[in-house]
Design a protein around this nucleic acid. Structure first.
Length: 639
DNA sequence: ATCATCATGAGTGAGCGA
DNA sequence: TCGCTCACTCATGATGAT
């Protein structure tokens, strides 16, 4: 997933030093000149199409043949044809196929033969390592085909508002970085229907090609990671091999004095993480180390429960300042939390169910580098059961409905027709004449599914928006003034304030004079409200939130609560680049805390249509959280 | 255009017994 | 260990009303 660091985009890196240039030359073999930038404009003219595919490492005559066969317009078909040619031409024997693989990557045939002899055919990783070592020894800084600044491939989709590429040099430094490029993937998805491209081997090949990988790398990755591998795993695999070697070289080369480039640590962090990732992923198909959800889901402890025995040591790279706090749904598709954790400095997620903080469940994972001792809850303690939260329902609550907690509050509510169906199903029943077990079961299922509460005899109802606000720890009418649908949606996507506040409470003694907060995907301001309710003054808050409705809610709350600090809103997360961050951080002295819960749309179980994991259109914004956190870290540590 | 309403499962893990 | 049942899930898309 972070694989964009390999392949052609590597050229977009601003490796500002000779060493970095060396790595650049070394890790990106001649066949790796896949030009993502060109991919977007490939249909411009015939020669450009030819250039495009030749740049991907296909022979010119084959490219010409493929174009002749498919026409210039359909680059997808051309690529498929080329891949077919490529596959069939290298299918002669396993050994020659292996040689072809590596020759295709740009290594000389002699070296490849030698490397295979040394390592044996079976171990392609070792062969690759050997080859990379050879190359490192031989390669001198040489001219690289330069990737032009990435053109805008289609509209910004999830962000929706403005194109996100600046043209100035400083920000272009990051356009080529691998984390940025995930948002590019994102923008691709709208115009080129990449969403569909993620399934099936051919489609994954296309997808990887569009991301800038060579066909060879993509094929190897698919071969190694298996037919069911995700694009994330494939890109992980591809770049791990290349980057780890690069890291070895770079980090091992201690003697040579290196000038410190701007934000170099960003690159180093990536290198280190990729190396670690590679070490862990010795077998790309091996999923045995998956993070498991704890039961009970109480993280490092919750109020009124005996704390589990835990001792946590943060990886060095994760230690603040700044502190960071990341949140997402606990029940994400398999492997998602492993990936999230890898990208967030290998910090283990803390899974907490908000049922220990309020009357509704909310199973969430949090990754943060905060201390975990001496936490304290918000006061007053909110009602912990449905009946305490909604006393008026007691009168109507049937004895056979044993619920004391609501399920997760989501973005949608039950329909009026459903409550009517339930009312009819319960017709004529009361305490003396309870409904049949089948009816009870049906009603209870629907009540659980839609979080219905009893508001009359045999009458259930959905929660009102202000009731959801209360359950989530927001002030009453926090979201008032927008459409009902939007209120449910914004609330359903929000933090549970008491839960988050409990984890953030350790900051109170550390920042008695206030805190500078970077709040990514801030929504209706769950983090801001939590800090405010903890009594931590908000000095400067930079809130990044795409929804104008949500920004207005936070702005309104900011004014209503007479905040003395500064609230700066940014709509588009892509606007948050190095320049912008440096400017902001210089103006008030840096961020103390970076909070964010990236979109869960493509992770959440409720999503029947696009539960695509971290590569999903919205959920891939996680990588923007990483990108920005890295930038903040880097700027913080440099100053 | 905006909003409200409604119908629409699959993926996942826990728990259980064979 | 396997197969089964059960419960739960920060949602999306189509449609109609305003």
């Amino acid at each position: 997933m972070d694989g964009n660091i390999s392949g052609g985009e590597g050229d977009n890196f601003d490796w500002g030093t000779e060493d970095e240039q060396e790595i650049d030359n070394f890790s990106f073999s001649p066949s790796c000149y896949t030009l993502l930038g060109r991919a977007g404009s490939a249909e411009a003219s015939g020669t450009k199409v030819v250039d495009h595919f030749v740049g991907m490492g296909f022979p010119e005559e084959i490219v010409a043949e493929a174009i002749k066969e498919n026409g210039e317009e359909n680059t997808d078909l051309i690529l498929e044809t080329l891949l077919r040619y490529s596959a069939s031409s290298s299918a002669s024997s396993s050994n020659s196929k292996l040689i072809d693989h590596f020759v295709g990557m740009g290594f000389s045939e002699d070296l490849v033969a030698k490397a295979i002899q040394e390592n044996g055919e079976g171990n392609t990783d070792s062969i690759l390592e050997t080859l990379l070592t050879y190359s490192a020894l031989e390669t001198l800084p040489a001219e690289q085909p330069h990737v032009e600044e990435q053109p805008q491939i289609g509209e910004q989709t999830h962000i929706g508002e403005q194109p996100h590429f600046d043209s100035d040099q400083f920000s272009s430094e990051y356009e080529g970085s691998f984390l940025d490029d995930f948002s590019d993937m994102d923008s691709c998805s709208e115009s080129e229907d990449v969403t569909n491209a993620v399934s099936g081997e051919d489609n994954r090949l296309l997808f990887l090609a569009r991301m800038g990988y060579t066909a060879e790398d993509a094929l190897i990755a698919i071969e190694r990671c298996g037919p069911d591998s995700t694009v994330a795993e494939l890109t992980d695999f591809i770049c791990a091999a290349q980057m780890s070697k690069a890291a070895d070289l770079l980090l091992g080369d201690e003697d040579k004095p290196r000038p410190q480039p701007k934000r170099k640590c960003f690159h180093y962090d990536i290198l280190k993480r990729k190396k670690q990732l590679r070490l862990e992923k010795k077998l790309p198909n091996d999923h045995e180390e998956l993070i498991r959800l704890p039961n009970p889901m109480i993280g490092y402890g919750v109020p009124n429960e005996s704390p589990p025995f835990v001792h946590r040591t943060l990886p060095d790279a994760a230690k603040g300042p700044p502190y960071f706090f990341y949140e997402n749904v606990a029940l994400a598709p398999k492997g998602v939390w492993d990936t999230i954790s890898r990208f967030l400095y290998e910090v283990e997620p803390e899974f907490v169910d908000s049922r220990y903080f309020c009357a509704a469940a909310r199973k969430r994972g949090y990754i943060h580098n905060l201390p975990i001792q001496n936490r304290f809850p918000l006061l007053p303690t909110p009602p912990l059961t449905i009946q305490e939260a909604f006393p008026l329902t007691r009168k109507w609550w049937p004895s056979w409905d044993m619920r004391t907690k609501l399920n997760c509050l989501q973005t949608c509510i039950g329909s009026a027709k459903l409550t009517e169906r339930i009312r009819k199903a319960l017709k004529d029943s009361d305490d003396d004449h309870p409904p049949s077990l089948a009816v009870q079961k049906y009603v209870l299922e629907e009540c659980r599914k839609w979080n219905l509460v009893w508001v009359g005899r045999n009458k259930v109802a959905t929660l009102e928006a202000d009731e959801v606000e209360m359950l989530l720890g927001f002030p009453k009418n926090h979201t008032r003034g927008i459409s009902r649908t939007d209120r449910y949606k914004s609330l359903g996507n929000s933090f549970q304030v008491d839960t988050v506040a409990y984890q953030l409470s350790v900051l109170k003694d550390m920042f008695p004079r206030g805190i500078n907060l970077l709040s990514l995907f801030s929504g209706i301001g769950g983090a801001e409200v939590a800090l405010h309710r903890l009594g931590i003054p908000l000095k400067n808050v930079v809130a990044v939130e795409i929804s104008e409705v949500n920004r207005n809610i936070v702005r309104g709350w900011w004014e209503q609560t007479n905040q003395r600090g500064n609230l700066i809103h940014i709509a588009d997360v892509q606007e948050v680049d190095g320049d912008r961050l440096e400017q902001l951080m210089n103006s008030f002295g840096g961020f103390d805390l970076v909070v964010g819960g990236s979109p869960c749309n493509n992770l959440a179980g409720s999503n029947r249509h696009h539960r695509d994991g971290l590569e999903g259109r919205e959920s891939s914004l996680f990588y923007d959280y990483c990108r920005i956190l890295d930038l903040v870290n880097c700027i913080t540590k440099r100053t």
